[in-house]
Design a protein around this nucleic acid. Structure first.
Length: 823
RNA sequence: GCCCGGGUAGCCCAAUUGGUCGAGGCAGUGGCCUUAAAAGCCAUGGUCCUGAAAGGACGUACGGGUUCGAGUCCCGUCCCGGGUACCA
């Protein structure tokens, strides 16, 4: 065997050339019969070079794609690039290089890596979201949404990142900071473009029940949408004859409302305080609150502060006058920017009431009336008290409905649902993005660019630097245009779209990527959509995954497609860490895929990444651990090469295996069985690889120690191992299989286990006494329970335990064990 | 605080429905081959009962429970990771 040396540097490019030249992984859109499968990994954002996380997603996705192909499905497995965005633009600002050039360089690096990794991609469908032929349709979709009122422009308080000099969507603000650069965001009043995602809140929430996604991702989306049901209740400020509505989830506690609080941003504060003597105190408080950072203001454990407005509102259920306050714990963005405060049954209101010595009233009886203040604040359920004779004694949940009905009847309120979800702010004051296809005309207003004039090309500019307005505004030739409606002088919209718009529909375009009449042909799309298996990182749990769902629903409503959800199944892969920490340049713990591949080959790198642990969990990279996988693949290849030169032919199962040959045939079939179940259930690739390692170890032992007593059985076992490992290590598996059989393993169906070889004629009977293992005895598989009992009693160590004691009970599990209970 | 994960050997991790805990790999130790090294191969691998063997006791974060039998189910606690939080 010494002359056989596993050389991935020779093997891998050789097979990559075959796949490339024969376009092995391309699929056409012929609408014939046959099961299809759409396997997709989240599209990469190309900057610099791919990192180890990319290697992981595509290793997982490729294993799935190959498995689907070999179980008889036509698999769509495309690739593209999320190519607009700030990285390229910031790079341009620094170097003066056009973002298109740096993006193209990064894309080239990604393409080359994906080829070196041997990922089975249909390259005929490749595109980048910055291609005009692609963003033409992004603009087309924008206009569809615009025509139907789902894209609109409004003046609003928005999140502004001073560092990136652009506005951000709510989803891009994490803990009050810019998701990209980490700079604290500010509130600014600006006119911006929005998508009306809130119109889909209920469907986005309810349809989560129809898709197979990890529960925690669904939970995150549910929380983000944040639907809560309750009532709008109107409170009147009698002094000024002004009405204020509040949203509450607890109208049952209305009788316990003892004061009223408004957000510092509330537009009516000046008006309310005028003439009360509280003007300056309120103004001062408001100024302080508004200049405070989101982070400090938002802290939950911050002591409650506020200022009396000098006015009162009337509680509609009992006519009581309630003092009005301004306090920063009330948010303008949620509900109506004002609340009724029920200190007896809300922790925040309670804290405020304590701080300002306001009355606290119990209106719901607690199940546990102990504790100070009688257990207030009490947020649980129970019968109402101190309310009014109509409701006292009724259970609060029941009373809630009755109170809402009563309010509605009196015209003082109504049932209401509130959402945390805000409309998606899509405009960005940046250069490297998809232009918004709108023209502003002094005569006609906001006018859409006609469809036949798309794409609105992104112009070249000299200066990309962000200035608080889009760099596009400087391209005067481009901005100045004629109004499509009246032909008068008009100006183009200069904001570009959030890159999340680009990635909200790319998976639709893959189905029909060269269509120049439409973004896709609905009949072709119907053949592939939805994506059967989507794979990516959890970090997109709300951003990308929510936006894509919204797009699909909106486009379905507009008649452009026929599915309600983009991704039927979702798999979120875990992060790869090094030394227990996230890889980063500053930490100096980055593992470069290129280095690993040039040292070990792509097969070893891919297989190790899958072997390191369950793919949905985080895993720590080990520089030594990878050796084990390298040895395994090397052993497989060397054995296959040696076996191929030896006696026998092909990799067929021997006719009537016996003795050592039978053992190998059995081992191979057990491996097939185990690997198949690891592939079909969760993606237990780590366990699957371990099973193939066992098989190869068995082959190695037979070959090296026992002199290859049944060469055909060895060929069969090694061929099976190569076949099973193909989805993880495609090059070495192809080569080993080809050496043995002259055939291409990817053209072979997924191996099926032969049940005849899965069960041995004997098994090891486990003998327990009082549940403790005492003996293991080989027994014929067809032994009767009576025989098993007898054998158990005779087993030496069991016997020693039983002797002299009373047998109380005997449990027999056929094919497994006997447990003798003694006293 | 709340909602999800997770805690098995020095390390990463396996273990259908409750039925032999420790598969597979890393690191370690011993050995074979070799002039030597590399490569390759084999063996070993929780703790305790004075060393080894045999045998036994204990052992899946901790404390209880259910069961003939618990890593797995139930109750309580601790630790680690993630998400989320003045959302009325």
């Amino acid at each position: 065997m010494a002359e056989h040396r596993y050389d991935p540097k020779e093997i891998e490019p050789r097979w990559q050339r075959v796949w490339e030249q024969e376009r092995t992984w391309e699929v056409d859109n012929e609408l014939g019969a046959g099961e299809t499968s759409y396997v997709l990994e989240m599209l990469p954002y190309p900057s610099g070079e791919p990192h180890i996380g990319h290697l992981k997603v595509y290793s997982v996705g490729d294993a799935v794609a190959h498995y689907h192909r070999r179980t008889g499905r036509r698999v769509l497995h495309p690739m593209g690039y999320d190519a607009f965005g700030l990285n390229a633009e910031n790079h341009a600002i620094k170097t003066g290089q056009h973002p298109r050039d740096s993006t193209n360089a990064a894309i080239a690096a990604f393409q080359q890596q994906f080829r070196e990794w041997g990922i089975s991609i249909d390259w005929s469908r490749e595109f980048a979201t910055c291609d005009p032929e692609y963003y033409r349709w992004t603009q087309w979709i924008f206009l569809q949404l615009f025509e139907h009122g789902l894209a609109y422009r409004k003046d609003a308080v928005v999140n502004w990142c001073p560092q990136d000099a652009t506005v951000l969507a709510n989803e891009q603000v994490i803990d009050g900071r810019c998701e990209r650069c980490g700079h604290e965001v500010e509130a600014r009043q600006l006119e911006q473009w929005f998508f009306r995602i809130t119109a889909y809140a209920d469907r986005l929430l309810d349809d989560l029940d129809t898709i197979e996604w990890p529960e925690h991702v669904k939970t995150m989306q549910r929380n983000w949408i944040g639907r809560s049901t309750g009532a709008q209740v109107t409170f009147r400020c009698a002094e000024l004859e002004l009405d204020y509505a509040v949203f509450t989830t607890r109208p049952d506690t209305l009788f316990g409302a003892t004061f009223f609080v408004m957000a510092p941003e509330h537009p009516d504060l000046e008006r309310l305080t005028a003439g009360t003597g509280q003007e300056s105190a309120v103004r001062e408080y408001v100024n302080r609150a508004l200049t405070e950072s989101n982070e400090t203001r938002g802290a939950a454990d911050k002591p409650k502060t506020g200022v009396f407005l000098g006015r009162h509102v009337v509680n509609p259920v009992n006519g009581e006058a309630m003092p009005m306050y301004v306090a920063d714990y009330v948010l303008m963005e949620y509900g109506t920017g004002a609340i009724m405060a029920v200190p007896g049954h809300d922790e925040r209101d309670y804290a405020f009431a304590k701080a300002y010595d306001l009355p606290i009233r119990r209106v719901v009886e607690g199940t546990d009336p102990d504790g100070d203040e009688g257990g207030l604040p009490y947020t649980g359920d129970g019968p109402l008290v101190n309310s009014n004779p109509d409701f006292d004694g009724a259970h609060n949940r029941k009373a809630l409905e009755e109170i809402v009905a009563w309010l509605a009847q009196e015209g003082k309120g109504s049932a209401s649902t509130n959402y945390r979800l805000r409309d998606w702010l899509l405009s960005r004051q940046r250069y490297w993005g998809c232009p918004i296809p709108i023209v502003h005309c002094p005569a006609c207003g906001t006018v859409p660019v006609p469809l036949d004039e798309l794409p609105v090309m992104l112009p070249d500019v000299e200066d990309y630097a962000p200035k608080g307005r889009s760099p596009l505004a400087a391209a005067e030739d481009w901005v100045a245009t004629a109004c499509p409606r009246c032909d008068g002088p008009a100006r183009r919209e200069t904001d570009t779209m959030d890159t999340f718009v680009d990635s909200s529909w790319y998976f639709l375009r893959y189905t029909d990527p060269h269509n120049d009449q439409a973004p896709w042909d609905p009949a072709i799309l119907a053949r592939w959509a939805p994506v059967d298996q989507y794979i990516g990182g959890v970090e997109h749990a709300i951003l990308h995954l929510l936006y894509a769902r919204f797009f699909v629903k909106a486009l379905a409503d507009l008649g452009h497609l026929d599915v309600q959800e983009p991704f039927a199944k979702l798999f979120t892969q875990g992060m790869i860490t090094k030394d227990g920490a996230k890889m980063s340049k500053t930490r100096g713990n980055v593992v470069s895929p290129q280095e690993i591949i040039s040292r070990y080959g792509a097969d070893t790198a891919r297989t190790y990444i899958l072997f390191i642990g369950p793919p949905d969990k985080d895993a720590d990279w080990s520089d030594t651990g990878i050796n084990g996988v390298a040895d395994f693949l090397s052993k497989l290849w060397r054995l296959a090469a040696a076996a191929a030169e030896g006696p026998g032919s092909g990799a067929g199962m021997p006719k009537a295996p016996e003795g050592p040959g039978l053992d190998l045939v059995r081992a191979a079939n057990v491996a097939v069985e185990n690997v198949t179940s690891a592939m079909t259930g969760r993606f237990a690739f780590n366990a699957a690889i371990a099973r193939v390692m066992e098989l190869v170890n068995a082959c190695s032992k037979e070959f090296n120690e026992n002199g290859n007593r049944d060469p055909q059985a060895l060929r069969y076992a090694l061929g099976t191992a190569a076949s099973l490992v193909f989805g993880f290590a495609p090059h070495v598996a192809s080569d080993a299989y080809h050496l043995l059989t002259g055939k291409r393993v990817w053209e072979e169906p997924w191996p099926a286990a032969d049940p005849r070889f899965l069960e041995l004629p004997t098994f090891e009977l486990v003998v327990q006494v009082n549940g403790k293992l005492r003996d293991r005895v080989p027994v014929a598989r067809d032994a009767s329970p009576e025989e098993l009992k007898a054998i158990a009693h005779d087993a030496p160590h069991a016997k020693a335990q039983i002797d002299g004691r009373e047998v109380v009970k005997e449990i027999v599990v056929p094919g497994k064990l006997v447990n003798i209970v003694v006293r």
